Amino acid sequence: MSNIDIRHDHSLTHAKARKAVEEVAEKLAERFGIEYDWNGDILNFARSGVDGKIALGPKQLRVTASLGFLLGALKGPIESEIRRVLDERFK
């Protein structure tokens, strides 16, 4: 099993950062069938082959995920895409 652990600084207000995380989760749900729910300021997400969370802090996001065998082979491209989206949404 492969793991992803990305920390990303941001300067958004709490409300704007939470809204941006929610929008990203909605797109992932539409595109890849990922299910998600909030537990305080942590968005948990899962689907077959991936289980993770996005922890929302006042100045930083932390994305962690465990990838199953098949998705583990794509860890590099998956991490790159996560970083691209974070750079785009959380400047």
Rank of each mutant, 00 (worst) to 15 (best):
A15T: 09
P58Q: 12
A15R: 08
L12N: 02
I82W: 02
E22N: 11
Q60A: 10
K16V: 15
L43A: 06
V85L: 11
I34L: 14
M1C: 12
E79Q: 13
K75Q: 14
D87L: 00
G40I: 08
S11I: 11
A17C: 13
A65E: 05
L71S: 03
G52S: 08
N39K: 12
N39T: 10
I34S: 02
R89D: 04
E30I: 06
A73P: 00
K59P: 03
L12A: 03
F90S: 08
G76L: 14
L56K: 13
I42Y: 04
V24P: 00
E23V: 06
A25D: 03
W38P: 02
A17P: 02
E79M: 08
R84Y: 01
I4P: 15
F90D: 06
A65T: 10
G52K: 03
S48I: 05
M1H: 13
L28N: 14
K75Y: 06
V85C: 02
V85R: 07
G72N: 00
M1F: 07
N3I: 03
D37S: 13
G57K: 04
N3K: 11
L12C: 01
K59F: 02
P58I: 07
R83G: 04
V50N: 01
V50L: 07
L43E: 11
S2V: 06
L56D: 12
D41W: 05
D87M: 06
K27C: 00
I82M: 08
V85I: 12
V24H: 08
P77H: 05
H14W: 01
